[in-house]
Design a protein around this nucleic acid. Structure first.
Lengths: 194, 194, 194, 194
DNA sequence: GATGAATGAGTATTCATTCAT
DNA sequence: CATGAATGAATACTCATTCAT
């Protein structure tokens, strides 16, 4: 039984997210969010004292969404060989579900350049992701699925590949993107010594 | 013999660039640019009819700066072996000179999500870069410096690696970044069959 | 046996008084009062239907405080000569206790210019004070402590002197203020024919 | 030939003065001033960067008005006896022209409690007035029109009397006020030893 | 080529107040 | 008695833009 305040806050962040997706960070405003929600702007300031506070909320909102597929997308199959390929497909597969609008995500990423708190949040998220990758890679390494590697270094490389892939997704046509995905997967295979 | 108008326009874009670097796209305005230049805002509107027009100008300004090291950074050494390694260092070396403020660059990148014209500019820039990479890779391939590869595919992968590296640069500490650079270079070496 | 409602109203007025002292009438608001009290703004509206009503309450609160030293500060000594000098010291002495913050007091005084009800309250307070002065002066006159005077006129003059003194207190340095107090006392002595 | 900017600024201050007279400091706003002028609020911010800046301007505007009758109201008659009485009438006469709305004046006075700069302006004005009084009193003293007095002290007392008179003007009916004026004049006569 | 006056819509935030719980 | 949701108007100030000079 969630409190009404939490629901409202969530609603506001959801609307902020939609506005920022459509209009960008420079085109988003409390008034537009309120209009989308069908409430008065002052109601929003009732829940978030300042716009900065609300933006911090949005970053958390987005990073949570962004993180989800990584944390919950990993198979727990007993067969490590199979699990490894599922894992790779989860990272670079064409059917990878994108939970967060890329425009909104990069808008928030831009905030890291001037807002140390937001940079921390992004940093924290990537740390958690790196830790997850390391754990997973170590598992595969210890079970002979992949070769002996520097797991931290490899995790960083994988994250970089993923980021590059995401960045270029919309710059490429479907065929090029498909090739890039495959190429990335193969690159990872080589990186882990297979 | 440049006209005074061109000089002024350049000056304005330079100031816009500085403002966007410091305050982000959501914190930049004609008034702030004018203040930085020590002129009246209306002078800026005199040279750029609308803010959108000026922003288009800024994108070109930034992409030009961004492109420069790639186009002029490639060695023309006769020794292909040596040239190849200089080439790799140019892309992933620690001493790679960054000509464009990353915050400003990503702010402009964000605009591609809502402005098709700007997306075109970015797309064009990456096309030119891909063409350059393909030409260079083909040269190395034809001269036996690297193995038989799908050059387009490899060029895309290299661009992705570079982008991922740039994205994470400020999220990593110096040591991690150094390792990532080295790792990237090794990854490319494997991709090109060495 | 005071009701809780009366206590709360008193509490609210005390907080309003503090806020107006610190921020002035133009900087005071129900929200700030509520924050100072650690309650919700709506609680204040519960006790005072409108802000105007609360302001009326504040005026009474302040005038009551303001009046106090005059009403209770007068000696009841049997020796009229002595009592007269204590009386004078009470009005113009350096050790005169100020019960009301001058900033808050003048803020309320300003309201008399637009709010007839508030003007009445101030007028009533000054009437009571004048009556008191007249009574006291008559006593001294009838007992030969002072000469034959127009008591009403003299009371008005004394009030004016006091007001002028209060007005300039913070514009003068300590020495000047001390001299002014002494000068005022001497002026009164002359006015009452001594 | 005054510049348009100076005229506009003056116009704005005049309107601010009218609004503050009618609505008090707590009821005055840029929007109301603009409405009274028939212009957009943003035009006002064009001439005064902040409301505080405009308020500083208003204080100067009001003090200037307030000062005027004192500086220009003093007779330069050669007959000192006559000049002295004209001088007294100027200060306490019934026909004393009031140049400044009392409500607006006291609203500004209230600002001295929280704004040191404004306090300074008021202090400066009173200093100039005291200096003027001292000069005038010294003239009379040196020419035997009045007795030997402490001119500074007397100047302070006169200012206090005037302030008290102004403060109570609107609290008294016409007859009482007339009497108070006369009483004040007599008090001054006694203070200067006549 | 450049200034500065002016507009009108927009910004985040605060205001007093109402009402259901 | 007290909270907290919600409103709608107001606050100072900034925005991009136009236009006359």
């Amino acid at each position: 039984m969630e409190k009404i305040a939490d629901i409202r806050r969530r609603e506001i962040l959801e609307s902020y997210y939609q506005v920022i997706s459509k209009k960008g960070i420079e085109g988003s405003s409390i008034a537009k969010i309120a209009k989308l929600m069908g409430v008065q702007p002052s109601l929003i300031t009732h829940y978030f004292k300042t716009k900065d506070e609300m933006t911090m909320g949005l970053v958390d909102f987005i990073l949570e969404k962004y993180e989800e597929p990584y944390f919950y997308g990993i198979s727990d199959a007993a067969d490590y060989e199979k699990r490894f390929h599922l894992f790779l497909d989860g990272l670079f597969g064409l059917d990878r579900i994108r939970f967060v609008d890329a425009g909104a995500f990069y808008s928030c990423y831009c905030l890291t350049f001037r807002n140390p708190k937001i940079r921390e949040r992004f940093g924290g998220m990537y740390d958690r992701f790196r830790t997850l990758l390391i754990k997973e890679l170590t598992l595969y390494m210890n079970n002979g699925v992949i070769g002996k590697i520097d797991v931290t270094n490899t995790a960083n490389a994988i994250m970089s590949l993923m980021e590059g892939l995401a960045y270029f997704e919309r710059m490429l046509d479907a065929r090029e993107y498909r090739n890039l995905c495959r190429s990335m997967k193969e690159t990872v295979l080589r990186l882990v010594g297979r």
